[in-house]
Design a protein around this nucleic acid. Structure first.
Ligand SMILES: [Mn+2]
Ligand SMILES: [Mn+2]
Ligand SMILES: [Zn+2]
Ligand SMILES: [Zn+2]
Lengths: 147, 147
DNA sequence: CCTGATCTTGAAAATCGTTTTCATTTTATT
DNA sequence: AATAAAATGAAAACGATTTTCAAGATCAGG
């Protein structure tokens, strides 16, 4: 993403926050930019370190509070991890899922999983009414693949 | 599962623990039985409460330590949840995934997801080498479905 | 059976990530 | 500028999990 695109997207997110009654602040801008600028899912402490480069007096609490606001608006999602579920990513668009590099943590999005048939089979077998599914892939990104 | 089957399975798990150098104790047996007896994924505190019916002097630490041993041996897996990943279940057999009732928490297992084609497509599109996948379904179990 | 080596246990304290509290500052509206 | 509402940071509180440590249980060998 180019610097101009990053500014653009950051500004759009701040607009959406503002439309929802939140205020436009330098801290929020720094945190949003840190989320959007990273190809990796970042945890609160990593976002804190990143955003403090812009706002040295930032508090870690503000990172947590901002993540919560962004999650409430559906702008970010939390990445499910083996150890915990604390990393933050720009939300998937429509019916997408995450593909995570198990070496460097880079995340990309994908679509096209067609599980409708599976759901019907399972519903018939188990009597469950299927409501939701989580699908998350792990692998090696191009940069981390052995040559 | 009948009481006899439960005893049988519990004993098998204790055997496996013992074969791996762990010792056979009453605490461990109570915790293993609690895991196997429940149709739901239980968190450490729930297992604690359940196992204390057998062993009133049990400590919560022992529950954590036993879960860790069972996970090391591959006998249990942790269920991925929105809030955290702390619930424990007998491990899936072969290529299976979890189907969780979003109302009562009952968990069943399923197989038959065929994602190989999807993985090839995604590998081609993204350059990732796919290694692993998590698939978890949520729905309403027969008992929780509206009539 | 004893006995020692090793593993297990529970209580208490420590740790770690996250949330709450509260007084102060900042933002948005008049 | 004056005001009301929201945002902030420091500190304290919190809850789940882990570590420490001294005492107790299990197990293999004699
Ligand atoms: Mn899907
Ligand atoms: Mn699968
Ligand atoms: Zn990578
Ligand atoms: Zn149910």
């Amino acid at each position: 993403m180019s610097p101009a695109e990053l500014d653009q997207l950051t500004s759009e997110w701040l607009d959406k926050l503002q439309e929802s009654g939140y205020r436009r602040t330098d801290r929020c801008e720094a945190i949003v930019r840190a989320i959007l600028a990273s190809p990796r899912a970042m945890d609160p402490m990593e976002l804190f370190d990143e955003a403090r480069k812009d706002i040295p007096r930032l508090g870690l609490v503000t990172v947590y509070r901002t993540i919560q606001k962004l999650a409430d608006l559906g702008l970010v999602e939390r990445l499910h991890q083996e150890e915990g579920c604390h990393r933050v990513l720009p939300a998937t668009q429509g019916h997408q899922h995450f593909l995570v590099c198990s070496s460097c943590g880079t995340v990309t999005y994908f679509a096209g999983d067609n599980l409708a048939g599976l759901f019907e089979t399972i519903a018939a077998q188990t009597g469950f009414e299927i409501q939701e599914h989580w699908l998350q892939l792990f692998g090696l990104c191009p940069a981390c693949r052995p040559a």
